[in-house]
Write a protein that binds this DNA or RNA. Structure first.
Lengths: 335, 335
DNA sequence: GGAACTTTTGCAATCGTTTGCAATATCATT
DNA sequence: AATGATATTGCAAACGATTGCAAAAGTTCC
C-alpha cells in the first residue's frame, strides 16, 4: 500500500504540498498540483480515510438508524422502508458519504456517544419514528446533526421529512365516500406518529362528508397483514350488515382484511370498498387490485440527505412534508 | 471529550498501561486494571475507534454489498433481502462490528480498493449474486475475506451460503405433480444463479414423474409481479387448454401470474395450481393463499456472518446450503 | 539594487491509540 | 546481601494523514 509520503517522494515535494495538491488547494502552484495528481492517479493512490478522519475529526459517514417497533420487531420487513433506504444509500454515495446501517432494538447504545462522539458518523438519519421516542427528543437538545423520517407535529424541535399523511388519508377516505360508502372503518395503530396523522385524515373526511364518527369502527391494528386479518374477523364481522368501507393505515393491513372478508363471502368492492396506504409492490397484483396512497420515496430520501448535509454545514433545515398520490384501483370501484 | 491520556492521568498510570488495562491485558496488575476500568466507566470513556483503527489497521466494520439486477434495478425492494439484511445487522452488532451498507450499481468502485485496502472494512458480505459477476470471481483471487449469498456451483473458489434451491424447487414441483398436474410451466430467469438451480429442480421433478420437458412451458420472467403478469398473459394463455400448473421462481412472479389468470377467468387451484418461492409476507394473505418454499433467512444471515469472521481469523470456511421448507396452501390444493 | 509584497513550499505538531522493548519493581533463593 | 527470575510499568515510535506558521522563492516598484 502506498502512502501519501510515497507519492510526495515520487513527486519530489513535501508531504504537506502533496496533501494540499490532492485536495486541489489553490495555494499550491497549478503545475505542482497537476503533477502530484497525475502521479497519484498513476499509482492508484487514495488517501487513507482512517488517518484522514483522525486528523480532521470527520468520518464522511452517515449512520442510518432503523427503529424497530417495540413489540412486533418487524419494521425492516416493511417494503416501504427498503425503498427509501435504497434511495438514501444512492444519495449518500453520490455525495461522497459512506452509510453505516443500524437496526436499533429498543435498548441500545446511546446514539450520540456511539456515533457522533466516537466519530463513527458525522450525522444521523432516523427512520421509523414509531411511538414517540424520547431518544429523539433528547438528541434535539444536543447539537448533533440529524433528520427524522416520519410525522411532523408542526412545531418539532428537530428536522422531520415525511409524507402528507393526513391529507393523503383524507383523500383516500373521501374517495371511499364518493363511491357511496357511509360506514367506513379505520384499521391501524394511532399511537404511531404517522398513523395518527392518517387517522386524523380519516376523521377529516368523514366530518366533511357529514358522516358520524363511530368509535366502534376504529380498530387498533398492528402493521401486519396478519393482524389486519385477525382484527377484521374478530371485530368487523359483527358490523358487517352496515359496514361498507374500510380504510387501512397500510396496504399490509388492507390485504389481511381483504383476505378475511373474501373468505367470509363478502364481495369487494361491491358490498364493501377498501383502501390502503403505501402502494407496496403487491397492491396492484392482488384481486381486486388495491386502492392506495403512494408516498414519494424518491424525493423523501433525497430530502433527508440534503437536509442533513445542510445541518452539517451549520445551516438550519426546515421540516417538510411531501405530497402523496391516491391510486384508485378495483378494490374501491363501486358503480 | 475525554481521551485515553485523561483516563491515564486520572488513574495515575501511563497511557500504555491504561490502554492495556482497558483491553484487560493480563500483563497489567489486576488492581491497576480494575482501577483504570472503573475510572473509564465512571467517566463514560470509550476509546476512539478511528485512532484505534489507524494504529491496529482494523476497522471493526463489515461492508455489506447488495448487488442490483443490472436492468430492472430492483433488488433492494425484494422483501427477502430485507429480512436477511436485518439478521446480518443484528449478528454483526452482536459480534461488535459495524455494518457499512452499499447498494451497488453496475459500474462501481473496486471493492477491494475501496473497502479493504482503504481499511473501511475488514470483510465483505455480498448479496444477490445475480448473473455471474466477474467481480466476485476476481475477489477470490485476492486474499480479501468475503462471503456470498447465493447459489453454490459445488466447487466455488469462494465461500457461498444459500438455500437448497434445487431440492426446494423439486419439492414444490413434485407437490404440484402429486396434486395431479401434468403440464407445469416454469416462470423465472435461469440466467440468474439461484433461479437456475430452481429451474434444475423443476426439471428434476418432472423427470422423476416421467413427464415431458416442453420448452414452450419455460418462460424467462423477471423478478417482478409485473413481469409475471405480462408473461402469463402473452405466453401462457394460448397454452391454457392443457396447462394445469405453474411453478414460479419467486412469489412476486407467482402473484402476478395468478392475477392474470384470475382476470382471465381461470380457477386457481381447481383448473390450474400454482406454487412460488420465498414466502413473502403477502403470500399467506392473497386469495387463494400461495403455496411456496420458505428460505431460512435467520440461519442464512448467521452463517454468512460466522463464516466471514472465520475467514478473518485465517481459517477456511466451507460453502453451505440450507434446507428450505415447502409450505402448501390453497393455491395448489386440488382435491 | 533593495524594500515590500505575493506566491509557493516545507517543518513540525497534532489527531488518539497500540505495542516492542527496555527499565524498574518485586520476590524467592542461596 | 547479592543473584536471578518474574511481574509491572512506561518511553517512544508508529499508524497516515492535515494544517498553522515560518521560511524561501519570485514579483513589482521606486
Amino acid at each position: 500500500m502506498m502512502t501519501l509520503a510515497d507519492i510526495a517522494a515520487l513527486a519530489e515535494v513535501s508531504e504537506s504540498t502533496a496533501s494540499r495538491a490532492l485536495r486541489d488547494n489553490p495555494v499550491v502552484n497549478i503545475e505542482t498540483r497537476l503533477k502530484v495528481q497525475q502521479i497519484a492517479q498513476q499509482y492508484q493512490f487514495n488517501v487513507n480515510p482512517t488517518a484522514r478522519s483522525l486528523r480532521t475529526q470527520k468520518s464522511y459517514t452517515i449512520a442510518v438508524i432503523i427503529l424497530f417497533d417495540a413489540k412486533s420487531q418487524q419494521a425492516i420487513s416493511d417494503p416501504f422502508l427498503l425503498e427509501i433506504l435504497g434511495v438514501i444509500a444512492d444519495e449518500l454515495t453520490h455525495k461522497g458519504y459512506d452509510m453505516l446501517l443500524s437496526t436499533s432494538k429498543t435498548k441500545d447504545k446511546d446514539w450520540k456517544t456511539y456515533y457522533i462522539d466516537a466519530k463513527r458518523a458525522d450525522g444521523l438519519i432516523i427512520i421509523g419514528q414509531g411511538e414517540h421516542d424520547q431518544r429523539i427528543e433528547q438528541l434535539s437538545h444536543s447539537k448533533v446533526p440529524f433528520v427524522v423520517w416520519g410525522a411532523s407535529s408542526g412545531h418539532d424541535s428537530f428536522t422531520v421529512v415525511g409524507s402528507q399523511n393526513r391529507s393523503g388519508a383524507e383523500a383516500a377516505v373521501s374517495h371511499l365516500v364518493a363511491q357511496g360508502c357511509k360506514h367506513i372503518a379505520f384499521l391501524g395503530d394511532y399511537r404511531h406518529n404517522e398513523i395518527e396523522q392518517r387517522y386524523l385524515g380519516y376523521q377529516d373526511a368523514l366530518q366533511k362528508a357529514g358522516l358520524v364518527l363511530d368509535p366502534a369502527y376504529e380498530l387498533i391494528t398492528d402493521f401486519t397483514a396478519q393482524d389486519g386479518y385477525v382484527k377484521t374477523q374478530q371485530q368487523l364481522f359483527p358490523l358487517l350488515p352496515k359496514l361498507d368501507g374500510i380504510f387501512a393505515a397500510s396496504d399490509a393491513i388492507a390485504l389481511g382484511a381483504m383476505k378475511a372478508l373474501q373468505e367470509h363471502g363478502v364481495q369487494v368492492p361491491q358490498q364493501l370498498a377498501i383502501a390502503g396506504f403505501d402502494d407496496i409492490a403487491m397492491s396492484a397484483y392482488c384481486s381486486p387490485a388495491l386502492t392506495t396512497v403512494k408516498q414519494d420515496t424518491i424525493n423523501g430520501g433525497k430530502l433527508l440527505v440534503s437536509k442533513l448535509l445542510q445541518q452539517m454545514d451549520g445551516e438550519q433545515a426546515e421540516s417538510e412534508l411531501l405530497p402523496v398520490r391516491l391510486l384508485t384501483r378495483q378494490s374501491s370501484a363501486r358503480g
